[in-house]
Computed example of a mutant assay.
Amino acid sequence: MAAAVEADLCFPQFNSSYRKITRSPAVSMLIYITLSSIAVLTVVLNLLVIISIFHFKKLHTPTNLLLLSLAVSDFLVGLLMVFQIILIDGCWFLCDLMCSLYFLLDYGITSASVGTMVLISIDRYVAICDPLHYSTKVTQSRAKVCVLLCWLSSAVFQGLVLRDNVRHPGRYNSCYGECIVVVEYVAGIVDLLLSFIGPVSIIVLGRAILYDCSLLLSEQILMLAGSFNLTTLKSERKALRTVSVVITVFLICICPYYCVTLTGGDAVLSASSVAFVMCLFYFNSCLNPLIYALFYPWFRKSIKLIITLEILKPGSCEANVV
């Protein structure tokens, strides 16, 4: 009996060791294979998006810079999945500081993803509802500044939310080999408002306005303007549909994450207890490049040039992939 109890402990040599999550070997292997597959696909596919937008000059547009920011966050999510794979049985084998940093990175990347979605919604709003002034209002330099501010503010804000956990790593662990952080009630409420409720409200409201604007105003404006044509209108509407799919999938995948991690009083977050919602969030990061491949011809062309190593040839950055 004692041997069976020790087998259930993460560190049998310590009496205060955290107890492993009990699963059958087949289920554990299935989870391991699933997470590993999602991680590899997420990293590879988003790396293709990053290389495509970064390398080909034709893709250096404000909208694609925002997609690049989203791809970077998704790429980092894929790398973070390594820690979730380590936590399959609930045991944390790294130091307490790494546990705190893991949650800090997770929170920061998530906030940056949500912020990028807000920027994408604003970009589409201006493109559809005010197309005549889009090129002057939305420039590459402004897009870069917005992306930079989004990432910096996410890092600073989440650093403040988890500051006690980073300063005193492991202070809330009750057992050896456990990985939890505690978000204070007030900090959790502020995080919920600024990182989820507020941005999601803007995104949902923006989508409603975009569709009304597209149906009622855009066609008339573009038909009357000499510098625009019906092809431009169709292109903008196609981009709107693609972004709408990305945003819808994002909301479906991220809502359970926030519902689990930011509810109640002092939210005690166990890395093993949020495995399902984390996997759902990770899966969204894998889906985004597949959505691009389905709706964006430039991404399919870029992938072909990357896989065939055509991008290594001189002047390949000038290729017309649009």
Rank of each mutant, 00 (worst) to 15 (best):
D8Q: 13
D8S: 12
D8K: 13
D8T: 07
L9N: 00
L9S: 02
L9Y: 03
L9P: 00
C10Y: 04
F11N: 11
F11A: 11
F11W: 12
F11Q: 12
F11S: 11
P12Q: 02
P12V: 00
Q13N: 13
Q13K: 14
Q13G: 08
Q13L: 14
S16Y: 10
S17G: 13
S17E: 08
S17D: 11
S17Q: 10
Y18R: 09
R19D: 04
K20Q: 11
K20D: 02
K20F: 07
K20M: 13
T22R: 15
T22Q: 15
R23D: 10
S24L: 05
S24T: 11
S24P: 00
P25C: 06
A26T: 14
A26Y: 12
A26D: 14
V27Y: 09
V27S: 11
V27M: 11
V27A: 11
L30T: 13
I31A: 11
I31D: 15
I31W: 14
Y32L: 15
I33S: 04
I33A: 05
I33H: 01
T34Q: 09
T34K: 03
L35R: 10
L35D: 15
S36D: 13
S36Y: 12
S37T: 15
I38P: 03
I38E: 13
V40G: 07
V40K: 07
V40C: 10
L41I: 14
L41E: 10
V43Y: 02
V44I: 15
V44Q: 08
L45W: 10
L45F: 15
L45M: 13
L47F: 08
L47W: 04
L47H: 04
L48E: 07
L48F: 14
L48D: 06
I50F: 01
I50T: 06
I50H: 03
I50Q: 03
I53P: 01
I53Y: 01
H55R: 06
F56K: 09
F56S: 04
F56I: 12
K57W: 05
K58H: 12
K58V: 06
K58N: 13
H60E: 05
H60P: 00
T61Q: 07
T61Y: 03
P62M: 04
P62I: 03
P62S: 03
T63V: 09
T63Y: 10
T63M: 11
T63D: 08
N64V: 02
L65Q: 01
L66M: 07
L66W: 01
L67N: 01
L67M: 09
L68K: 00
S69E: 01
S69Q: 05
S69H: 03
L70D: 05
A71I: 01
A71C: 03
V72T: 08
S73E: 06
S73K: 00
S73Q: 06
D74I: 00
F75T: 00
L76Y: 04
V77K: 02
V77G: 06
G78T: 04
L79W: 08
L79E: 04
L79D: 05
L79S: 03
L80P: 00
L80I: 01
M81I: 08
F83C: 01
F83E: 04
Q84N: 15
I85W: 07
I85A: 09
I86E: 14
L87T: 09
L87D: 14
L87R: 09
I88F: 05
D89C: 06
C91F: 04
C91M: 07
W92R: 14
W92T: 06
F93G: 03
L94Q: 10
C95G: 09
C95I: 02
D96A: 13
D96F: 05
L97G: 14
